[in-house]
Amino acid sequence: MNKKTIAIDMDGVIADIETHLITFYKEKHGIEISREGIQGLSEEKAFPIKEDLHSIVNSKGFFRTIPVMPDAVESLRLLQENFEIFIVSAAMEFPVSLGEKFEWLKEHFPFIGWENIILCGSKRIINTDYMIDDHPKNLDSFTGKPIMFTSFHNTEKENYLRVNTWKEAVAFLHQTL
């Protein structure tokens, strides 16, 4: 029997980019940004010095040091028992991130083989049964079952099945078996 497939985004889904950006922003500008204060805002509005946000995410070491989302490692291990998992990241937007993302995955998710890691530009070509992503633009063209992982910038979006935590994601996916 073939396992169902899941495409899982990195930033904002298994990698806690929100915490990382808040920390970097405070270190660079001394500006305290709260999680509560950025809910429902775009990245540009949440972190108002746009050219600085761009330089932060393009800085060496940024993607290599992102914290892991709570329960992500255990959840992916659990899901891997019944699903084939692909990590899919639109990494081409930030070319410095390519090697860093691969190294980060090897450290935190060593059980995901290199052949199941897709660092790409557009995710339109992804053809799995499910896709878990925090950006509606990646879910809009997806032909399988899209699942939105809650992030500060998507709290106002209501057109997708939403999961707020990895425990919720696992519970939903296990009920589809």
Rank of each mutant, 00 (worst) to 15 (best):
E27Y: 09
G99R: 09
Y25F: 14
H174C: 11
T65V: 03
N138M: 09
F63C: 03
P67F: 08
K167C: 11
H153L: 12
F47E: 07
A91R: 02
T150G: 04
A169G: 02
V170L: 14
G61H: 03
E156R: 02
E44F: 09
R162E: 01
M69G: 01
F47K: 04
L177Y: 06
E84S: 10
T176N: 06
I147A: 09
L79I: 07
H29L: 14
N82W: 00
E84H: 12
M1Q: 07
T155G: 00
W166D: 10
N2K: 15
E156V: 10
D134Y: 13
P136H: 01
I117A: 03
D133H: 07
E18F: 04
T65M: 02
D9H: 02
W114C: 03
I87E: 01
A15R: 07
N154G: 07
P70S: 12
F94C: 12
T155R: 05
I125W: 04
M148L: 15
I17L: 15
E158V: 01
K106T: 05
I85P: 04
A90M: 04
P95M: 06
G12A: 11
I117S: 05
S59N: 12
C120V: 08
V13S: 08
L161Q: 01
N127I: 00
V13N: 06
T176C: 13
N127M: 08
I17S: 14
W166P: 03
G61C: 06
S141M: 03
I112L: 07
I132F: 08
D133S: 05
I49S: 01
K60I: 10
I66D: 06
G113W: 00
P67T: 13
H29I: 03
S141L: 05
N138I: 07
E158Q: 06
F63E: 11
N58W: 13
F83M: 08
I132W: 11
S59A: 14
H135A: 14
I147L: 15
I126L: 05
V13G: 06
T165V: 05
K28M: 10
N127E: 15
L105N: 00
K157C: 09
G40W: 02
I17A: 10
P146N: 13
I17E: 12
H108I: 01
G37Q: 03
G37S: 15
L105M: 14
T5Y: 03
A169W: 09
S97C: 12
L177K: 12
I33L: 15
E51P: 13
G113E: 14
K45S: 01
F94W: 12
H135L: 13
L76C: 00
T128W: 02
A90F: 00
H54P: 00
L53N: 02
N82V: 00
N159R: 05
E103W: 00
S89H: 04
R162K: 15
R64N: 01
E115M: 00
D133K: 00
M69N: 08
G144V: 10
I8D: 09
G61T: 14
